[in-house]
Amino acid sequence: MLAGGTMLYYNALQHGLSKLPQADPAIRANIQTMADEFGWEYVHRLLADVDPISAKRIHPNDPQRINRAYEVYLLTGQTMTTWFKLDQGQKLQYDTLKIIISPSDRSILHERIALRFKMMLEQGFLDEMKTLMSHPRNHDDLPSMRSVGYRQAWEHLEGKTSLDDFIFKGIAATRQLAKRQLTWLRKEEGVIWLDPMEPGYLKKLQQQVDEFLA
């Protein structure tokens, strides 16, 4: 059973990975210099000019993925979208049962996101961040430190936002992430959707599993 989480991992397991070219440090450095001078939104617009599909998929505030997508184009003359359409290699050779458990009422999802974020704070999330920030190798431009929640916490602990603003931004960023995940999931074929708020949903889940394994 695979549960999660990051749909990119599941997609790679199911369909294989495209054989993208290796990173080129010189090109990456040039893109970084451009971003330092003009901003990542400018680089994102350059990417949109040559690869609008990737640009639509990648947020303008996601420098790591913008850099990689534009690097692939500059390095090969082909967009990342084109590379993804090429043979992705070994596909999963087994039948799969794909079940998505998500409340159909988005207000319930939003309430649970807010509750989860506040529980993280109660369980010491900011103390964890202080420990991470004290490590000499960590900085706010690391991919891990730019992930949802961590980016907002770093800004708050640097004194750039109040506690209330930090909580608001953290919850908002998590809701945006959930929206992107649902958009991705709606594109999946052969998926069974179950609403955890509906009576008897666990029984329906068990029935689906039993029928698949029969």
Rank of each mutant, 00 (worst) to 15 (best):
Y94E: 13
Q64S: 15
R57M: 14
Q90C: 03
E128Q: 10
K56D: 12
V72D: 01
S107P: 00
R112S: 05
W83Y: 14
F125L: 10
T131P: 01
T82L: 04
L92I: 07
L163I: 09
T81A: 09
S107V: 04
T131W: 03
P143R: 10
N61I: 04
A114I: 04
T81M: 08
A55V: 03
K56P: 00
D95T: 07
T96L: 03
L109Y: 09
S144D: 09
G159Q: 06
M120H: 11
K118Y: 05
D95M: 04
I58Y: 04
H59P: 03
L163G: 02
L115M: 11
P63F: 12
A114M: 06
T76C: 04
Q93F: 08
D95A: 10
D95I: 02
Q152W: 02
P143C: 09
I66K: 05
L92Y: 15
P103E: 10
Q93S: 14
G159I: 06
L97G: 05
Q123H: 15
D62K: 03
N67I: 07
N61W: 12
P143A: 09
D105T: 01
P103Y: 09
Q93R: 14
D95F: 02
M145E: 10
S102R: 10
T96Q: 08
P60R: 00
I58L: 09
I53P: 00
L92E: 11
